[in-house]
Simulated assay, not measured.
Amino acid sequence: MDLSQKDWQSQLEEDSNAVILDVRTADEWSEGIIPNAVLNDIYKGQAFIYRLEELDPSKNYYVYCKAGGRSAQACAIMNQMGFENTYNLEGGFMNWKGPVVFPEE
């Protein structure tokens, strides 16, 4: 499901069962992330799928990329794999107005 920036952030703040999934590349990740995000680069192909298989499908996944295209694709893949609650950040990280942190090296 696509959510606006405002709805994605407000829903995330109220969700105690949330996982934030960043599907950008490692280079993009190093430029800043939404706090508590987990990296799983969609461009890694089968490795991306393997990492999804390790996730708990009962959690709620808030997925983002740079502009919203890759994360929409990731949500579709996750839904096919049995993840019921995936939320795509419309407009992606480049339009994010919420908190940003830099990942530990």
Rank of each mutant, 00 (worst) to 15 (best):
Asn60Trp: 00
Ile77Met: 07
Ala18Arg: 07
Ser58Asp: 11
Ala74Phe: 02
Cys65Lys: 04
Asn60Lys: 01
Gly92Tyr: 11
Asn60Arg: 03
Tyr87Val: 08
Arg70Ile: 14
Ile34Ala: 02
Leu52Lys: 04
Asp27Tyr: 07
Cys75Ile: 05
Ala26Cys: 01
Ile20Ser: 10
Ile49Trp: 04
Glu53Lys: 14
Thr25Asn: 03
Arg24Met: 09
Tyr87Met: 05
Asn36Thr: 14
Val38Ser: 10
Pro57Asp: 08
Asn79Tyr: 00
Phe48Arg: 05
Tyr50Ser: 15
Phe48Gln: 08
Gly82Glu: 09
Gly68Met: 12
Asn60Gly: 01
Met81Thr: 01
Tyr43His: 13
Gln80Gly: 06
Lys66Ile: 05
Arg24Leu: 14
Val19Leu: 13
Phe83Thr: 00
Ile34Leu: 06
Ile77Val: 15
Tyr61Ala: 01
Phe48Ser: 08
Ile34Phe: 10
Glu53Tyr: 05
Ile49Ser: 10
Asp15Ser: 04
Gly92Arg: 10
Tyr62Asn: 06
Lys66Gln: 15
Asn79His: 07
Tyr87Ile: 05
Ser58Cys: 00
Ser30Phe: 08
Tyr64Val: 15
Tyr62Thr: 04
Ile77Pro: 03
Thr25Pro: 02
Arg51Glu: 15
Asp27Trp: 02
Cys75Asp: 00
Asn36Arg: 03
Asp27Ser: 14
Asp22Val: 09
Thr25Gln: 06
Gly69Glu: 08
Glu84Asp: 15
Ala37Asn: 06
Glu90Arg: 12
Ser30Lys: 14
Phe83His: 00
Ser16Gly: 04
Asn79Thr: 08
Gln73Met: 13
Asn60Tyr: 01
Asn17Tyr: 10
Asn85Glu: 11
Ser71Tyr: 12
Tyr50Glu: 15
Ile42Thr: 10
Ala67Lys: 13
Lys59Thr: 01
Asn79Asp: 11
Gly92Met: 12
Gln73Phe: 14
Ala26Ile: 15
Lys59Cys: 07
Ser30Trp: 05
Glu28His: 08
Val19Glu: 13
Leu52Ser: 08
Gln73Pro: 01
Ala26His: 04
Gly69Gln: 08
Tyr61Phe: 13
Leu52Asp: 06
Ile77Cys: 04
Ala47His: 07
Lys44Phe: 13
Leu89Ser: 13
Ala72Asn: 06
Asn88Lys: 06
Asp15Phe: 06
Ala72Thr: 11
Ala67Leu: 11
Asn85Tyr: 11
Tyr64Lys: 15
Ala18Cys: 08
Asp15Trp: 07
Ser58Ala: 12
Tyr43Gln: 14
Asp56Pro: 05
Leu55Cys: 06
Ser71Gln: 12
Met78Tyr: 01
Asn85Cys: 06
Ser71Thr: 04
Val38Tyr: 09
Asn17Pro: 00
Asp27Cys: 08
Cys75Trp: 00
Thr25Val: 09
Ile77Phe: 02
Met78Ser: 03
Pro57Thr: 13
Lys59His: 01
Tyr62Glu: 08
Asp22Pro: 06
Asn85Ala: 14
Tyr62Leu: 09
Ile49Ala: 09
Val38Met: 10
Ser16Met: 09
Gln46Glu: 14
Asn40Glu: 10
Ala74Lys: 04
Gln73Cys: 05
Cys75Asn: 03
Glu84Val: 02
Ser58Val: 09
Gly68Pro: 10
Asn88Tyr: 05
Asp27Thr: 13
Ala76Arg: 04
Gly45Ala: 11
Glu31Gln: 13
Gly45Asn: 12
Gly32His: 03
